[in-house]
């Protein structure tokens, strides 16, 4: 393969993914527990969306939540940073601990919580502002940067870490909405990184992207794993296999099975998990 020098960019960008898959399968010692969820139930009005979910999410690793649509995996994700608070009629019970503190505790301010737990959404949602302003948004509202120079530094560092710097360095003051889908999603990740969160939640971050852009994001996720605790919801089992170290399978609002990614995919204990990953449903 290396002999084909005139190969497309696609080749260059796709190649690292294979490494990522290898890495993922390399059995890594699980870090200390960052998020501990116990008996989480979520209700939308009278409808219960999540039943007694208990899950541990380790530090410095990628945890994938998989399962058929409507199984509650996004709902679980959104209750970690209390985004469910913004939906009228939504109620969360049970404990979700971040570093041992219950996020639903009255002493926890959702503003602080969300600064610590960043989130990336399914559809890239850059603000209708310049690229610079998009990344600077978090530091500005939280008052993290003390001066213009520091702000510029944060923006540059975040964009670099999101792997977008090289592409946008010369057009920082153009609207973020003018970027391509994949670039927008990386911009949104840079925006989340800019406030140095401890956890990054990703809600199907690649579902609106083409395969090449998806590969870039997956590569990025793998790099970010060293510094952040990442929880990713995905539809694609292949993606879960490629990027995650731990996988949790949700079905009909219940957590069916969770464990090291390699084990879930090669040796699932529950028959429903087996049916799902072998493509019988979902």
């Amino acid at each position: 393969m290396p002999s084909q020098r005139d190969d497309s960019i696609a080749h260059d960008t796709v190649a690292p993914v294979h490494i990522a898959v290898d890495r993922a399968h390399a059995s890594q010692p699980a870090g200390p527990i960052k998020i501990r969820a116990r008996d989480v139930n979520v209700f939308y009005g009278d409808k219960q969306a999540l039943f007694d979910v208990s899950l541990d999410v380790p530090e410095n690793s990628v945890t994938a939540l998989i399962g058929p649509s409507g199984c509650g995996k996004s709902t679980f994700l959104r209750s970690i940073n209390r985004m469910n608070d913004t939906i009228p009629g939504c109620k969360v019970t049970g404990r979700i601990e971040l570093d041992g503190e219950d996020v639903n505790d009255r002493s926890i301010d959702p503003v602080v919580l969300r600064a610590r737990v960043g989130m990336v959404f399914q559809k890239p949602n850059p603000f209708p502002k310049t690229i610079f302003e998009n990344v600077a948004y978090g530091p500005r509202i939280h008052g993290i940067a003390t001066g213009k120079a520091e702000l510029e530094e944060i923006v540059e560092r975040s964009l670099k870490r999101a792997g977008l710097w090289a592409e946008v360095a010369d057009r920082l003051h153009q609207p973020g909405t003018g970027l391509s889908g994949g670039q927008q999603q990386r911009l949104v990740i840079a925006r989340a990184i800019a406030v140095s969160p401890e956890v990054i939640l990703m809600d199907e971050p690649c579902s609106a992207l083409d395969p090449i852009a998806t590969a870039r994001i997956e590569e990025l996720i793998d790099e970010l794993r060293n510094q952040y605790c990442i929880v990713i919801v995905t539809h694609s089992m292949a993606q879960a296999a490629r990027v995650s170290q731990k996988t949790a399978f949700f079905h009909l609002g219940k957590l069916v099975e969770a464990g090291p990614t390699g084990e879930i995919f090669t040796n699932p204990r529950d028959s429903r998990t087996q049916d799902y990953i072998t493509g019988r449903f979902g």
Binding site: N81, M83, V111, L113, R114, N125, Y137, I141, V188
Partner: peptide, 15 residues
Amino acid sequence: VPQSLRDGSLAMGAT
């Protein structure tokens, strides 16, 4: 204005 923009901002910790 799309809800996703509000979500994006709220998820950043904005009031």
